[in-house]
Amino acid sequence: MEIIISSNTSKPIYEQITSQIKEMIMSGELQTGDPIPSMRSLAKSIHVSVITVQKAYEDLQRDGFIETTIGRGSFVAAQNRDFIQEEQQKKIEEYLTLAAETARVSGIKLEKLIELLSIFYEEV
């Protein structure tokens, strides 16, 4: 499992860890039941403090992406389809907000925006 940490972005390291693991799970790279590294060995391999990784794992557990059992380690949890949909929708809302704002600021009309969206949706 490869996690890349950027120290330059303002995104906290624990958030970078959670989003990368979430992406791997949602893209299918990590399947239900797959083991993920222990907090401490991940901390060592990406050169960050243990508590940082601990926070990331706690967030992932709270959001239902992983399960941690004492003695057995951490595993990818069975994914709740609805929850994933919700997460993906949140992401889409983010992107659309950006698109809408950009359009408004540069004077591009709503109809044009919808047209562009249809084109890109059809493209595979």
């Binding site: 060995s41 901390a43 060592k44 050169h47 243990v50």
Partner: peptide, 15 residues
């Protein structure tokens, strides 16, 4: 220093 910091992280792999 980086090598040493890694030794320290290895050390705390044990909780």
């Amino acid at each position: 220093r980086e090598e040493i910091l890694d030794l320290f992280l290895e050390f705390v792999e044990n909780e």
